[in-house]
């Protein structure tokens, strides 16, 4: 079974639209200094911080997002549609606004600011703030993919397992989650990729300090002020990491 031949034209245009800018980046890279540009102290600090925080926020997305997706996919209750829309809001919210919202919630003068202060927790300007910003923007990606996978998988096996006496937690652990593992994996990859590229919420909520809050996208943005060559080189590193992660997930039986 083939696709209609005309489909190739817009498909090729779309591919060119995505790939050409990447080619343009590669063409601009100053290969002679590439090594030194990406191994400077500030670059390495930013790269390490980005990997660390993105891994942490992906973990947070899985811990919080899997239960959210299960509830959204397996239950019908009044207001479900509204709830789903609200949960997915960070998808359409400009990240800078997301950062402001986090600031108004967890900041020193935010909704929970005095409570957090009483507990001795100061979120602002900390690496924790970076992880929170990334989790905030990445969570919907995991929830959306996993909810879709759960609905596709259906409830048949779960019903059978329950009829044979399996308790809800056993069903979730032994039937539901193994069935949607590819969906969970692709959701986690999306969340990781989104965390890696996160910029707006981070700079608004967490600030920018080398080794603590200045992730790779922030470092790129800053480097561009004085050294566009370094910014381009770092951007390429970010692209390569993203491609590797996505490719890794696909070969690992992904369903992206």
């Amino acid at each position: 079974m083939g696709v209609p031949r005309w489909v190739w034209v817009p498909a090729a245009l779309g591919a060119a639209f995505v790939l050409l800018p990447l080619v343009a980046i590669v063409a601009r890279v100053d290969w002679g200094d590439f090594g030194s540009l990406i191994t400077s102290e500030s670059s390495r600090a930013a790269f390490a911080l980005s990997l660390k925080t993105s891994a942490a926020s992906t973990l947070a997305c899985v811990v919080l997002g899997v239960p959210m997706a299960v509830v959204l996919a397996r239950h019908e209750f009044p207001g479900l549609g509204v709830l789903r829309s609200l949960v997915l809001l960070p998808l359409v919210l400009p990240p800078v606004v997301g950062g402001l919202a986090l600031l108004y919630t967890f900041g020193r003068r935010g909704l929970l600011g005095s409570e957090l202060d009483a507990l001795g927790v100061q979120v602002a300007f900390s690496t924790l703030a970076v992880v929170m910003a990334q989790t905030f923007v990445a969570l919907p990606f995991l929830v959306v993919s996993l909810e879709g996978a759960l609905r596709t998988a259906g409830e048949r096996y779960e019903v059978v397992a329950a009829s044979l006496g399996a308790r809800p937690t056993t069903v979730l652990r032994r039937i539901t989650l193994p069935l949607v593992l590819p969906g969970l994996a692709s959701g986690a990859v999306l969340a990781f990729a989104r965390s890696l590229g996160e910029f707006g919420a981070t700079i608004t909520f967490a600030g920018s300090l080398q080794g603590r809050t200045r992730t790779l996208p922030l470092e790129i943005y800053l480097q561009r002020e004085t050294d566009p060559d370094a910014a381009v080189a770092l951007a390429l590193v970010l692209v390569v990491v993203a491609v590797l992660v996505i490719g890794f997930a696909r070969t690992g039986r992904g369903a992206l």
């Binding site: 300007f125 920018s208 300090l209 922030l218 002020e225």
Partner: peptide, 10 residues
């Protein structure tokens, strides 16, 4: 500083 921002606006 606790943060080195990108611009005076930040």
């Amino acid at each position: 500083p606790v943060s080195e921002e990108q611009s005076v606006t930040d």
